[in-house]
Design a protein around this nucleic acid. Structure first.
Lengths: 125, 125
DNA sequence: TTTATATTTCAATAATAATTGAATCATGGA
DNA sequence: TCCATGATTCAATTATTATTGAAATATAAA
């Protein structure tokens, strides 16, 4: 992932309402939530919510699907996971001594690197 | 973690130079990097770097230590890890069917929950 | 001391982002 | 068709962030 892209994804999360929206969709999982349900849950106006949903969609952190007269929003875990990997990439690589046996406060936790969908059988190279 | 706090930490990462700075410090690990080394590595002016370092420090994503006439900066993995946990908290909790056996694109990866410092002796459970 | 290096602060400007309320668009039911 | 509901768009205003270059601070070497 490119820095500029990652920064814009982070920017889309860097606003309390949007962060609440995104986290609510993370908790909701596959079924997602309608815009109206989100607005009520978070206590924001439809206009404000719509503005923030657009930002999140532009950042590809969520996507939407029309269902009757509702629009259902869902978190995009692929983007989310790519972002987490980007943030922790090559953690402590420049400090050989700290790469193993360190505890959580001294280095990055293992963030599952994206597997493109069980490619074939092989141990990690 | 509170939403407002998390949003301000994210904001501090949501700027290409700051993101580069932070990632460089993540890679550097414990030894950290001096401000000057960072400035050269990233090709930014001392003034701009200083401004961004202040933002990251305010967000508690980095800390600094004077060493002779250099100032060494380090990533704060505790803050970083807390942020990652916050983002993936209760992932898919509202959708019981998706909580197990899902692949990386459908739900959150396991982000190591903070252990406060090797509680006692035991092999990883 | 004086001088050089490393880094931060300041004040001005330029650029971006968030909020508001009214207006618009789309879908489904009476 | 007409109306109500769910949601988005628009334009104006306000608020927040980033960049510049000059000046200031701090440490260390000559």
């Amino acid at each position: 992932m490119e820095t500029k892209i990652a920064a814009s994804i982070l920017a889309s999360l860097a606003q309390p309402t949007r962060l609440d929206v995104f986290r609510a969709l993370v908790v909701a999982g596959k079924p997602g939530l309608a815009a109206g349900a989100l607005a009520e849950k978070l206590g924001v106006s439809a206009t404000v919510l719509s503005f923030h949903l657009k930002e999140l969609r532009f950042a590809q952190l969520i996507d939407s699907e029309q269902q009757g007269r509702f629009i259902i929003y869902r978190a995009r875990f692929d983007t989310m996971n790519a972002l987490l990997s980007f943030l922790t990439e090559n953690c402590c690589a420049a400090d050989p001594r700290s790469t193993k046996g360190v505890d959580d406060d001294t280095c990055c936790p293992p963030v599952a690197t994206k597997k493109t969908k069980r490619p074939s059988s092989s141990t990690t190279p």
